[in-house]
């Protein structure tokens, strides 16, 4: 995410990126990846903007956005807690970790905590199965977790924010 930028600056960057693409329509997924990096999620306005700049119907953009689970149309927390519910993690009890996070933060899937810091997203395998159960918070991977470690982990991020 790029918090220090105004929306105009973000749209300008996005437009530059779109103009760099040789074939705009086939680069749609790459463009959406970039847009999500800038805006952190893909609200309707951004989707319409992308559609207009590429010159395709917004419905096609929405069709792609809704197909791929990596793209999200809802805002997310500053820290995105991706909880792996893949097979290796599942048999090692990832559902307990998942419930503990929901309990500690009092949010459901995809919701953001009141302070805007955290949101919870169940994911399927991040490829660190050897460390199951695994949780990835933004870029940090936390492995071999048990439910007792959940509260201290949350606290460590709150501390970082001075909250």
């Amino acid at each position: 995410m790029t918090p220090n930028m105004t929306n105009e600056e973000k749209y300008a960057l996005l437009e530059d990126f779109i103009n760099q693409q040789e074939n705009k329509s086939t680069s749609l997924i790459a463009i959406l990846h970039y847009a999500q990096e800038l805006f952190d999620y893909l609200p309707n306005d951004v989707q319409t903007f992308v559609a207009q700049k590429i010159g395709i119907p917004t419905a096609r953009v929405y069709g792609v956005v809704s197909f791929y689970s990596f793209f999200t149309t809802k805002p997310r927390g500053k820290y995105k807690i991706n909880i792996c519910l893949g097979t290796a993690c599942f048999v090692k009890g990832s559902d307990k970790i998942y419930n503990e996070f929901k309990k500690q933060l009092s949010v459901e899937d995809g919701e953001v905590t009141q302070d805007g810091l955290f949101s919870i997203h169940p994911v399927r395998c991040i490829g660190a199965c050897g460390l199951a159960p695994v949780v990835m918070i933004n870029e940090d991977v936390h492995g071999m977790l048990n439910a007792k470690e959940v509260a201290p982990i949350i606290k460590s991020y709150r501390d970082k924010e001075g909250m």
Partner: peptide, 11 residues
Amino acid sequence: DEGDPGAFMDR
């Protein structure tokens, strides 16, 4: 694409 959860050899 390595979609099978639990497999990570390609990565």
